[in-house]
Amino acid sequence: MSILKKLLPLDIASGMKLTGKYFGRNFLQANRSKKHIHITVEYPETPISIAPRFRGRLQMLRDEQGEIKCVCCLACEKICPTQVITISKGKKEGRKTPFPTRYDFEMERCIFCEFCVESCGFDSIILNHQFELAAYNREDFSIGMEGQFQDMFRVSPVGQHSISSTKNPDSPDYT
């Protein structure tokens, strides 16, 4: 019996059967049919789902009046394990709490741990759902409150696909 088993390559045949089954199923089914057999996604065309807790890029938030929520308590700057946040305190007319004159976020060193958001007592920053964080220059990774592309309030033009379309990140109630 064992000699027969050794002679007949049934083990190989069962493996071939399994792989053949997957080939046949994929071959006979349209790539974009409702039920995907394949696990890969044709990324830019096919939207992908992002979990609500996804940790993407740091983004500052405004309140209902369009004011920057941040009050410069420096909690995020202190807790940040890689020191990517730099804040300068300042004053602004008609505002009691301090106002950040400088809020720099150096994304190339950011490790997306979300400690800053956790430490913020004012819900003034979030990590948004942006995962396309590529840029052409190193300088483009340092994001501040100003600048054409590196605005802390807006998503970068590179990451058009990565924000879930239902939510508008520019609106103040974006969370």
Binding site: A51, R53, F54, R55, F112, E114
Partner: peptide, 25 residues
Amino acid sequence: LYAFREREQILDCFESFCGARLTTT
């Protein structure tokens, strides 16, 4: 690839639990 198919599903679970897939914290 078959192993990564299942691993992907687990990483999706991680993502919905803590927001990251690999460096989870």
